[in-house]
Simulated assay, not measured.
Amino acid sequence: MTVVPDNTAWYPQDHGALIDNAVKNQAIAAKVLTPVTCAGHTMGFPVLEADPDVSWYAPGAEISLTDPETSELIVTPKAVKGLTKIANESIADSNPATAEVVGRGLARQIVEKIDNALFAASAPANGPQGLPLHTPTTVQVQGGLTALTDEDPFVTAKFTALELGAELSAFVLATDVAMSLATVKVATGDARRLLDSDDEGNLRIAGLPAYVSRHVAAGEAYGLDRSQNYLVIRQGTSVETDRSGAFTSDSTLVRAVMRAEFAITNPAGVVRLVPAGS
């Protein structure tokens, strides 16, 4: 009997890094949150509840000592996993595209799961809590976002966030909102579009990039301060293979595991734009 060793020469070990890079480069979550790597089981983020006090003093006067009011947000990355099977005939063909296709497919699905979780109205089983569950500040838009002819609600969102200690760095639009805003013209009879696009093709609204996600509820949009919100990725994303588990079908199993979580340190500074009456 010939024993075939479970080597992964056909499937590059850096495919774990491929998934990490795909998430950081393709996920909307990584564009509007700050990606950070967690080396341990949990990760803590300091939350400043109140600044230390300052006052005016006479020359040489003793300065009063005040402490900032701080707390800590502790997050534990959750596991998103995928398992697929490849016929050993495909592997034996020594076609390097097989590994690439499988790795990219797993990466795409993990990106989808992370973005879906970020905007989900209820947390997926065993998954992280998304923005709607962190009680963001709501801005109601009369007539709805799909009927807009100007950027005013987004300007309102920026100043609302400022009052709550956040400076918005980006918006995320539902697809129907993006389609509507992309066709708004400067004026009736004028073919020029109201909104510009950046070099990557993203709309710019109220001076900020606006990303589009099909995971945002129809008719809604979000504004976020990237410096206050984080995408926590556990170090050690892995892609592993095993021939024994699919021995009877002459196949190789490929498993991908990534652990991620969202750290929303100032929920009130996240602005959710919704139709009035929602």
Rank of each mutant, 00 (worst) to 15 (best):
N7D: 14
Y11Q: 03
L18W: 09
L18T: 10
I19R: 02
V23I: 14
Q26G: 03
C38P: 01
G40N: 15
H41E: 12
T42D: 12
G44P: 01
F45M: 05
V47C: 04
V47K: 04
E49D: 13
E49F: 06
D51V: 06
P52L: 08
D53S: 09
D53A: 13
P59C: 03
E62Y: 07
L65R: 12
P68R: 02
S71L: 05
A79L: 13
K85I: 15
N88W: 13
S90Q: 08
S90H: 11
A92C: 08
S94M: 15
S94P: 03
N95E: 13
A99S: 15
V101F: 05
V102I: 15
I114C: 06
D115P: 07
N116T: 14
N116H: 14
A120W: 04
A123V: 09
P124G: 11
A125I: 09
N126I: 09
Q129D: 11
L131W: 02
T135R: 08
T137G: 03
T138R: 10
Q142V: 00
L145I: 03
T146S: 13
T146F: 10
D152C: 07
F154A: 04
F154D: 01
A161H: 06
E163V: 05
L164R: 14
G165L: 05
A170N: 01
A174H: 08
D176Q: 09
S180G: 11
A187N: 09
L194R: 10
D196V: 09
G201H: 05
L203F: 02
R204I: 15
I205L: 08
A206D: 10
G207S: 05
Y211G: 00
S213I: 03
S213C: 09
R214A: 14
Y222Q: 06
Y222C: 05
D225E: 08
V232A: 06
Q235L: 13
E240W: 02
L253W: 09
M258E: 07
E261H: 14
E261Q: 14
A263G: 04
I264Q: 00
P267Y: 02
L273I: 14
